[in-house]
Design a protein around this nucleic acid. Structure first.
Lengths: 231, 231
DNA sequence: ACACTGTTGTCAACGGTGTTGCGCTGCGAC
DNA sequence: GTCGCAGCGCAACACCGTTGACAACAGTGT
């Protein structure tokens, strides 16, 4: 059950082949292969050259492993954020970084969309967002609510994008074609707005949506701060 | 394979016990029981008093059934939106209605967070949102992008809330307690902002977050429309 | 030097999932 | 009256996460 060789400094003993770190890294390797290769316990055992069930000596269940893997990727995100940015750019960097790793490890990103890891790196992210909204001028309950808005929104969006990558190619193709095909064929009487915009709708890219959603968060914080300042 | 008795008008024959509609309604009954009762094919067969695999005579696979069920709930949402609202209140009503049915049928809401049903009612939702952003003063590409912002954001948020309801009680308890317990115990040196707000953070309710996220979307549309008007 | 203890990996198996192929049945059409 | 065939039940498959019993082995106390 203990994750480290417990007491003494004999941690370098050759006997223990598998370590939590090795398992996490193997998980990331599988996750990086996207939907081509499902992230299953048996597949993980294969990747480690060990019996699949050996994993249960180091993690209580697959969920705990997933949380640990997610926390590792959170670290990647945090390390990619440069120092010395103002609050807006810090949020932008956090958003961009989160999206990047979520697309790199889709299984992880999608599984974490409505979870909390309660692990070291998560506290750093919370601290970062709180620092940003407070630097923007919010305090107390306002800061708390706006932090949750930013945190939940980023998680949801990033999870949404990641989950999309996990769909089988045919599902994804059907999804994409609907914009350019089916939406062009709707009844103009019943759906005048769709008809009017049928040319523009398929042109919208994920990057545009991502950008505008992040800016919406930032401007919500800004607006609230200005309102407080004026009263 | 055909979903209707194919050719002639003999659709009212008594022989066929199962119909797509009956299956969808049974699915909704199970989904409404939340996480207490998993939404599985076998459970669905039990609910229908039929063999589980009989469902495959009416739906290609579980995913297609899920899309149909989701479209049905979309209808519920649309019917709950009153006439004669201005664009802001229409978006608010759509958001509130979506959240309501997603929490009523968590499995459905969570599964649809990053999907597109490509079914009748979905076109009506798209039309509704497009109408709102155009009434706000956006056109062309601006309208298209902002529609996607609203649509994707609502879906993501509602899916996130629904997914949370599906977690086993112990996972949910661990999640909730983290705010009131663990976040109070962090190192004040390393996490000054968390420490400063440790009293306010657990006080934030889902309703507050929901409200502020929806308003952020509305004000983003408003701001963009004002910018266009001024130039 | 020895037995003991606790950790780590292997193996077989369990209960659960979605899904498919085969055979029966009974209705509607001719 | 007979036939065709859609609709359903049944058994089974492949896959999933997880558990319990067992073997190998390291470190420790006597």
């Amino acid at each position: 059950m203990p994750t480290t060789p417990s007491t003494t400094a004999r941690s370098k003993r050759a006997g223990s082949q598998l370590t939590p770190d090795a398992i996490i890294e193997a998980s990331l390797r599988i996750a990086a292969r996207g939907s081509q290769d499902a992230f299953t316990v048996r597949r993980l055992g294969e990747e480690l050259g060990a019996d699949p069930t050996a994993i249960y000596r180091h993690f209580r269940d697959k969920d705990e492993l997933l949380l640990s893997v997610a926390d590792r990727t959170l670290g990647e995100v945090l390390d990619s954020i440069p120092e010395g940015l103002d609050w807006k750019d810090r949020i932008r960097a956090l958003a961009a970084g989160s999206l990047e790793v979520a697309l790199k490890y889709p299984v992880v990103g999608s599984a974490m969309a409505s979870r909390t890891t309660r692990r070291p790196h998560e506290f750093r992210v919370v601290e970062l967002i709180l620092g940003a909204v407070m630097e923007a001028g919010l305090t107390g309950r306002d800061a708390a609510v706006h932090y949750r808005m930013v945190g939940d929104s980023l998680l949801a969006f990033v999870g949404q994008q990641a989950a999309y990558l996990l769909f089988t190619p045919d599902v994804r193709a059907a999804d994409e074609s609907s914009w350019s095909r089916e939406y062009r064929l709707v009844d103009p009487e019943q759906f005048p707005n769709i008809t009017r915009l049928s040319a523009e709708l398929p042109e919208v890219t994920d990057e545009q949506i991502f950008h505008i959603r992040v800016e919406a968060l930032i401007s919500a914080i800004e607006t609230r701060a200005r309102t407080l300042r004026e009263t």
